[in-house]
C-alpha cells in the first residue's frame, strides 16, 4: 500500500526521513527505511526549499535508501562491507537524531514550566564596593572642596563662537510650488519672472532645478531660441 504524506516543513534529510517513518508509526529498521524510499525521493523532488548546499546531504541519504529498496526487492543482492557500513551509519544517525528530537521536546516542557532561576544580572560587571568603617580613608571637607575646584577648572570656558548670519534657503519643494502657482495664473512666463529680483546664485539654481523637475513631470515645457537668450516657460497641459 502506498501512503501519500504531505510534510510542510522539514529540516534536513534526517528530519524528513524520521518523520516519514514516524508518520507510518514504524520503528527505524531496514524494512521501514526501504518502504519510505519512494516518498523520500518524492519529497526532495518536489521541495523547492532545499538549497543547493543541502542537496548533497539529501542525495547521500537517498542513495542509501535506494540501495535498501533494491535489496528488499532483490534478496539475492549482497551488500558490500562498505555499503553495509553506510546503512548502519544511517540507522545509527537516525536513532541518534530521534533521541535528541524527543529530548528537545522534554527540555521545551521543562523551560515552559517556568522554573527559571535568576541571578543579580543587573549588577554584573559592577563590583560592589564594601567599605569597612575603620578603614575609611581620611578625607576632610577641605579635600572635597579642593577636588570640586579642580573639577570646575577642568571644564573648558565656553568661548563665544563667531557669529554668522544664516539665511533661510528656499527648498526645491517650495520653489516647485511657487512656479506652479505662477504658471496656473499666467500659463506662460519667462525664467527671469520666476527668479524675479533675486540675485542670489543658490536661489537661481534652485529655481532652475525646480523648472527641470516640472518639465520631467510634464507639467511644464521650456523653450530657448538661442544660447543665453530668455527661457520661455509654458504650461505643459495642452
Amino acid at each position: 500500500m502506498m501512503y501519500n504524506i504531505k510534510l510542510d516543513h522539514f529540516e534536513g534529510p534526517l528530519d524528513l526521513l524520521l518523520r516519514l517513518i514516524e508518520e507510518q508509526q514504524m520503528d527505524i529498521t531496514r524494512v521501514s527505511l526501504s518502504r519510505v524510499a519512494d516518498q523520500y525521493l518524492q519529497h526532495i523532488e518536489s521541495n523547492r526549499d532545499i538549497t543547493l548546499e543541502q542537496l548533497s546531504g539529501f542525495l547521500v541519504v537517498a542513495t542509501r535508501l535506494i540501495l535498501l529498496k533494491s535489496k528488499a526487492l532483490l534478496p539475492v543482492l549482497d551488500l558490500t562491507d562498505e555499503e553495509e557500513e553506510e546503512i548502519e551509519d544511517l540507522e545509527w544517525r537516525l536513532a541518534e537524531y530521534k533521541k535528541f528530537k524527543e529530548s528537545a521536546k522534554v527540555l521545551k516542557s521543562i523551560i515552559e514550566s517556568g522554573s527559571e532561576m535568576f541571578v543579580r544580572e543587573a549588577y554584573f560587571g559592577v563590583r560592589d564596593i564594601v567599605w569597612e568603617k575603620e578603614n575609611l580613608p581620611n578625607i576632610s571637607v577641605q579635600d572635597i572642596q579642593n577636588a570640586f575646584a579642580r573639577v570646575l577648572q577642568s571644564i573648558p570656558d565656553p568661548k563665544k563662537l563667531k557669529e554668522k548670519i544664516i539665511r533661510r534657503v528656499l527648498s526645491l519643494e517650495d520653489k516647485i510650488f511657487q512656479i506652479q502657482v505662477i504658471i496656473s495664473e499666467r500659463t506662460q512666463c519667462v525664467f527671469s519672472d520666476i527668479i524675479a529680483e533675486k540675485k542670489d546664485k543658490t536661489e537661481i539654481i534652485v529655481a532652475f532645478l525646480a523648472v527641470l523637475e516640472l518639465v520631467k513631470r510634464r507639467i511644464l515645457c521650456v523653450e530657448q531660441k538661442t544660447l543665453w537668450s530668455e527661457i520661455r516657460v509654458i504650461s505643459g497641459e495642452r
Binding site: E11, G12, P13, L14, D15, E53, Q54, G57, V61, R93, E96, Y97, F100
Partner: peptide
C-alpha cells in the same frame, strides 16, 4: 558532531 546528529548545518 551536532551537525552529524541533526543532519543539517
Amino acid at each position: 558532531e551536532i551537525e552529524a546528529i541533526r543532519g543539517v548545518n
